[in-house]
Amino acid sequence: MAAATDDAGDSNEMIRVVSSDGEHFEMPEAAANLSLVLRHMIEDDCADAAGIPLAVVAAKPLAKIVDYCTKHAAKSSGLTIEEAEELKRFDAEFIEVDTDMLYDLLVAADFMGVEGLSKLAVQRTADLIKGKTPEQNRETFGIVNDFTPEEEEEICKENEWAFQITKPPSRLC
């Protein structure tokens, strides 16, 4: 189930990891090294045939992370302009996920210490928020509007400048 191994980095060693729900994954050592946590475990000789248990990362996000690391490890050093662009395209497609998966990736990448993925997921989330009206944001992220209409109006007024100069004039709140 794990990612392609044919374009692995210079290390041939495969590292096994186990998700919180017991699924096994494999990735080249160079890919595992992109995770700070896995790298430390490998350095401490904790990587064995049974696999490194990742007690808080479920199979679904872990599969994505293994994918990400494998791709990036294979293309880590001495990138040509085309390869860098291809990697950028990969990232852009990779992060086109629903908000549940985005949530999982944010937390898992942070937990595993995969810096590039953390940045990617953070930027994606920030972009999602900033491009939307309040109503769209509520819908996307499951936010319940618990203001009374009067309260909402008052709050918008309090920070009126932030809602101004949107062209064309869209609805405020």
Binding site: P61, A108, F141, G142, I143
Partner: peptide, 13 residues
């Protein structure tokens, strides 16, 4: 646990 995203109706952010 990661992989158990917040239930529907809770604020994901």
């Amino acid at each position: 646990r990661v992989g158990e995203a917040p239930a529907a109706g809770t604020d994901k952010l």
